[in-house]
Amino acid sequence: MSSTIFYRFKSQKTPSRILFDGTGLTVFDLKREIILNNKLGDGSDFQLKLYSLDTGDEIDEDQVVIPRSSSVVVKRSPAFKPNNGSILSGGGMNNNSGNNTVLNATRYVTGKPRVFAHTKKKQ
């Protein structure tokens, strides 16, 4: 039996859906399906964020399960490279040297979930 999760890109008027078998999808799998269904590419130049339709809160842990029949909001944003970051820091670049983490969506395409998501450094 086929299950459905509805998602709506934040800038779109109408929702789309992902069909799957089972009682729910992890955030990781749902993001992966959305990227593949919309042919968004290899994930290197954008980030994909999920938000709860009810609370508006971001759901960012890869392992969280989104139950079937629920609705989420999706946001596609540019990949973020800290070293090339804000231009607001007085013309010079934000120099968080040592932190070269690029925030993008490649792992959803390559198929490697972020296992220790919750140990992520607090900003």
């Binding site: 890109f9 590419g41 596609r76």
Partner: peptide
């Protein structure tokens, strides 16, 4: 260089 949704500006980042 991109197609479909991937070719769009980042419209989700602003309330159009």
């Amino acid at each position: 260089a991109h197609q479909g949704m991937a070719s769009l500006p980042f419209y989700d980042d602003f309330d159009l």
